[in-house]
Design a protein around this nucleic acid. Structure first.
Lengths: 298, 298
DNA sequence: ATTTATCATAAGAAATAATTATCAAAGCGA
DNA sequence: TCGCTTTGATAATTATTTCTTATGATAAAT
């Protein structure tokens, strides 16, 4: 044999504890020769005597005494590996890396992270806020465990689970509050302010206006919904924002919020993760918590 | 299977390192299925997934990442056990418990301990000084590794190795320096001072005088050779001391030292240890050093 | 001197781990 | 979309290891 085994360490530890081959073998639920052989094997592998065999009693050699302490350390560490596994199975512990798109993150995360931390006190939540393509990439690379994005993603290696539907609302300057609600098509003729390239929400807004890509008239590309709303408030145009963003973003801006008539613009927010992820079960559980948090909030 | 094995940890570590079943198997010099099976087995035993199996690439689960660190710790500790064994084989290290009889210890130990420490810097020498029966008992109980005593001991479980011969000399008051040398028999008629009961040297001295047990005339039982010499110096009688004790004990006493004529009284000092001791080899080596130290000294 | 306790050894049986061959799934390229 | 390749899983067989039972050897105990 080339290497020492944990089994040998267990046998040796029992032998050291009992000071007797027969009783140690009993404790290990094996026969005495089996234990003798493994100890002998271990001594051969190590190239040093562990046991001083007297006729009537055995005694650990000096090295044996050192070795048994090491053996105990090793066995303890091996057992802890099992504990660790059990702990990581029963409830979600350790690091959970969530990616969220920027048009959701500021409005959803405060509550969700709070709820998750309450539910899973030992969970160490990391948040990554960026646009969908990057989230998907990072998910694929194993840098994220899950992401909250607008569905569908349509990557066959991803599991998708819808969380909630989210309407878009029109944001106009306060003085236009009583103006007639523009149709989707007529938005094309207005000065429509949008997020910069890369944000899915930009595409979704354009889509609602039946525009495939950039609008005909110039747009100012903002990097956040806050900026958009502030710009609207300054009279620079109109914009769309997700319903969820309304409470936060219109608090300190003199703007008018109007819902569209049917068919209202809407997007589905969902959670995605690698289908192969062993966290699938827990992620499904987490998705429930997120859904509930979002429901109360929005 | 009931328990995880070191082999599995090795395979798992290789898999974590290479991120690829085939290459990890190569590194372990086994076939890919063998590795797959062991990893699977390990996951079943732990009850948790270690590996997230993607089609094109594999990735450690969160638990897997924790586990591989533990695995590395465990494997390192196991390897160190081998190192430890090698280290403890090549040269004598750690604790060495030496027992020495009182009529030898003060004259032999200073030099011997110094020489041993020089020769084996990592040796932690413990000295026990007491009478032979206690030394033998402690040797038997494993409280001592070796003892330096007067031979023979004649216990069949002991290994005995003679170190040197030691003559006895007569100690008389200084004024008696020129008196004729008494015969062994005539010592019986003199006031012979001896060590207290239990010291082998007492018995050896009595034996030289052809006395089986206590002498006919009253003796004062001293507890050390120093005391004996001081008593002689004070004119209380005569005594015998080992030659080796002469330089130390007569330094500050006005006594006369006389060697006996042939046949001189003599005893053999030797080293003993349990025949079963795994230190036998090193103890033999040590006995050489002790012999040399004693030779230069005495 | 016999008995008892204790560990070592041997041979065959059981369990475990390895190999080779094959399969299935998914990425990749035309 | 159709092979083709890569990669890991599975199955059947073989090899190895480990265990058990039976027995031996030695020294302590009676």
């Amino acid at each position: 044999m080339i290497n020492i085994t944990l089994k040998q360490l267990r046998y040796f530890e029992a032998l050291a504890r009992h000071g007797h081959f027969g009783r140690a073998a009993d404790a290990c639920a094996i026969s005495q020769p089996a234990l003798s052989m493994q100890i002998k094997e271990m001594e051969e592998v190590l190239g040093a005597a562990l046991i001083e065999r007297g006729a009537r009693q055995i005694r650990l050699t000096h090295f044996g005494e050192v070795a048994v302490e090491r053996a105990r350390d090793i066995l303890r560490a091996a057992d802890e590996l099992g504990d660790l596994a059990r702990a990581s199975k029963e409830r979600l512990v350790g690091r959970l890396r969530i990616g969220v798109i920027p048009t959701i993150a500021p409005y959803l995360l405060p509550k969700v992270v709070g709820d998750l931390s309450t539910r899973y006190p030992e969970l160490d939540i990391h948040v990554r806020e960026t646009v969908t393509p990057k989230l998907i990439q990072e998910l694929r690379d194993g840098q994220l465990d899950t992401a909250i994005v607008a569905l569908p993603i349509s990557e066959n290696w991803l599991a998708e689970i819808p969380l909630f539907e989210e309407n878009f609302v029109l944001v106009r300057a306060a003085k236009e509050a009583n103006a007639p609600l523009p149709s989707a098509d007529s938005l094309r003729e207005m000065r429509l302010l949008l997020l910069e390239e890369g944000h899915c929400f930009r595409d979704q807004a354009l889509s609602f206006c039946n525009l495939q890509s950039a609008p005909p008239r110039e747009v100012l590309d903002a990097s956040s919904l806050s900026t958009l709303v502030q710009m609207v408030s300054a009279g620079m145009g109109v914009t769309l924002i997700p319903e969820m963003a309304v409470p936060v973003e219109t608090r300190s801006a003199s703007v008018a919020i109007s819902r569209f008539q049917e068919p209202e613009p809407v997007r589905t927010i969902g959670m995605v993760w690698r289908q192969t992820s062993p966290l699938s079960g827990q992620l499904r559980e987490i998705s429930e918590i997120v859904r509930r948090s979002a429901g109360i909030d929005g």
